[in-house]
Amino acid sequence: MEPFRSHRGIVAPLHRENIDTDQIIPKQHLKRIERTGFGTYLFSDWRYHPDGSPRHDFVLNQEHYRSATILVAGKNFGCGSSREHAAWALSEFGIRAIIAPSYADIFRINAGNNGLLLIEAAGTTVQRIAAQAQARPPYELTIDLENQTIADGDGLSERFEIEPFRRHRLLHGLDEIGMTLTHEAEIARFEAAVLRCTPSQGYSNLGTAT
């Protein structure tokens, strides 16, 4: 996973709340067996006409936002389906960070597993950034994960909160499976301590609980 330390990029505003993963990557594009090839289809129903030509009313098709790497959006971003294809599509398009008041749980985990930084910001901050990005594109922000700050070099400089462990993983691009496998002994001990059977014998672990 590519580490995330500091990033400067153009902001694109999506003036919507509850942007679900069906919008981020519609289901007709989920049939690939690779992790790649999804960027072209990011927001495809909003981004293209049915004949495949670009819709000029969609922000990421507009001149100043085409190379955006930061999205700013409404609350509950990434709700709905668990499809990690949403995170893959965003990353492949070039999005490195999202700024929104809140995120859905599964999307939050998927983003973390793909080095995509989700910043949870107050509604007023989100509105301020969205308004700037709308009014004077290309509007750029610098996101410093090390110091947990976002700044535009023109008056906006705010600290954001992020769980320390999530920050640590992003900063170092750590592979979660590799981390868990260092606890092989604990997993094996757990399996041995609790009588674990095949399904037809009935799983049993509660007998030894607490």
Binding site: S82, N113, E163, T180
Partner: peptide, 22 residues
Amino acid sequence: FGVGTSEVEHVLATQCVSQKKP
């Protein structure tokens, strides 16, 4: 609960998930 594909891989490899307690 539902998980993403990286977590599917994590469970296949370790039979565990790494989760913050809801």
